[in-house]
Design a protein around this nucleic acid. Structure first.
Lengths: 330, 330
DNA sequence: GTGAAAGCGCTAACAC
DNA sequence: GTGTTAGCGCTTTCAC
């Protein structure tokens, strides 16, 4: 593999001139620039990323941490981030934390090792302080997640509004015995606390109370949804609607509930979250909250890019609105 | 950020000794090793990946090219590859070719730039010779795709058998007017040629002929499936079953065909491919061919790892069997 | 067993 | 405008 001095020799010039050409520096005579370009072509020269990194401290790679890439929300998000990164001449390195603290840490260490320039976190396991301590090695931006401390730059969708919108829709349609299901816990901190807030807001505005028996926490999968269906069917006093916080859970719930004799939405209205493709494929199709994934990905990447380039960038929040997709399940 | 000589100074030893410790070389006195380890800890030292790469020529990153990560088949495959890579202390870099030759090329160039050690290709756009020309920079392994030339090491599932299995099942159930849908073209070369072969084999063994009107090529998405449903409904002479080669296409087809008044499977039996989660969520649920994605990912990574480490590895083909998942749509 | 020193390929002062 | 050269942080001979 040819290196920079091979090119210099071939072009009859010095390595610095070659370097200038590679890096698009001004003040190189047109003809010499051409000579260098020609030599590069002839030798099939590719600058070594490793060497450049070592000098320039930049790898042109941004890391992206997701809980699991097989979750369509994240695969679409990663898709979007990758597209815009590639437009900006960056590669992305995807990492699945699998909700495991140590895995997350080992990935953050790539920042310290200078293998990546920055990290976009779409999931966090460690504490805010711990994660923040890695910012001395490079920028870390949170995507669709946040810490209360506000130590880290964040691009967030309005989850309060998302949940509020869905629950309010149910209430306005006349449902009043609303069950609620979340991927997190039903408390004031932790994951999905904003959605909890939105749910509570809609409920209390309507002057009704939360029935704690109808609260399902830490629910994520299709199978979780099926389990919920079984539980609901076995209840004496049943909810007439459920806000699930996940299309997968909603799908499993719908399939199983119908198998057990419930009519959707007559006996039980169901609202999902994300507007995944499957939401339009079940029978009945799923009414759901659509998150602006594309804009979320774009804004997040633009934000980290601006930090990397030491520019200022203000996230355009107006693009990040949730949308209620009304279908058949509610 | 501390570097190797900071560590050396702190430990009162030379950089070479530190380097030996980092790389687990023998012949380092126990106490000195401990001193080094201690100094590393105290300084919070992380060896610079860039510098190591430049010397050692290895980045511990394997690239993976997929057409699109949002396709569940590929997100599950990538998931699996990532898990096993991480067990072997490798990172993976995912790249979406989006069926675009230039994008593919720009990724292969990362090999030349030594940014990645090897490439797993789950999709190919350029010619076999062109891709093969990059192997002088590092190993390239094909995953679930192949070229006829056999220039590149490949891990393949038996697609002939997969399609044969599905079509034969339809024939044995008494369907005889079989439509066929493929993501590639219906020819002897190109993508999905093996599935075509399997389809032809089953059909001709049964002594029937292919009706070219019932052939749908280049079909991938849910919407494609819906279109096919409309076309079939508008036909005077309709097929009574269809092998789709994709769960997404099958799902779209099922939803739309029912909307148009067809009964599935009575009027039209449908077989998908992949056994994606959605196959169990539609009504009726989808009979489909399950590919051993996990094993495919594992074997592919093991193969490229063995080449990287200059060891011999023979792919265990017995693990790579397709499976017919019988549900309701056929 | 350990250390000194020569690079790996590149960039960026600095000198001309 | 262009060339010379000193490192970036690391590994690896080669002496000792």
């Amino acid at each position: 593999m040819a290196n920079i001095s091979d090119v210099a020799k071939r072009a009859g010039l010095s390595v610095s001139t070659v370097s200038r050409v590679i890096n698009n520096h001004p003040y190189v005579a047109e003809e010499k620039r051409d000579a260098v370009l020609q030599a590069m072509r002839e030798l099939n020269y590719q600058p070594s990323a490793a060497a450049r990194q070592m000098r320039g401290q930049s790898s042109k790679i941004v890391g992206v941490i997701v809980p699991r890439i097989t979750n369509p929300f994240f695969s679409y998000l990663v898709d979007e981030i990758q597209q815009i990164a590639s437009q900006n001449d960056f590669q992305i390195m995807i990492f699945q934390s699998n909700e495991n603290k140590n895995k997350e840490t080992s990935f953050l260490e790539l920042l310290a090792k200078k293998q990546i320039d920055g990290v976009i976190m779409c999931a966090m396991e460690q504490s805010e302080e711990f994660i923040h301590s890695f910012t001395k090695f490079g920028p870390i931006v949170l995507c669709n997640e946040s810490f209360d401390g506000g130590l880290l730059p964040t691009v967030n969708l309005d989850q309060v509004q998302g949940a509020y919108m869905g629950v309010k829709y149910l209430l306005e349609k006349g449902y009043s015995k609303i069950a609620y299901c979340t991927g997190g816990l039903f408390d004031g901190n932790g994951k999905d606390r904003d959605r909890n807030k939105g749910f509570n807001k809609a409920i209390s505005e309507h002057g009704i109370k939360v029935n704690t028996e109808w609260l399902f926490v830490d629910q994520h999968t299709i199978d979780d949804g099926k389990n919920i269906a079984r539980k609901i069917v076995s209840m004496e006093y049943r909810p007439d609607a459920i806000f699930t916080g996940s299309d997968e859970v909603a799908a499993g719930l719908i399939v199983e509930a119908q198998k057990l004799g419930l009519k959707i939405p007559q006996d039980l209205a169901v609202i999902g979250f994300d507007d995944q493709p499957l939401a339009a494929l079940t029978a009945p199709t799923i009414t759901t909250i659509k998150q602006p994934i594309q804009e979320l990905g774009r804004e997040t990447f633009k934000l980290i890019l601006s930090i990397l380039q030491k520019e200022k960038y203000t996230v355009d929040v107006s693009k990040l609105e949730m949308e209620l997709m009304i279908r058949e399940s509610a």
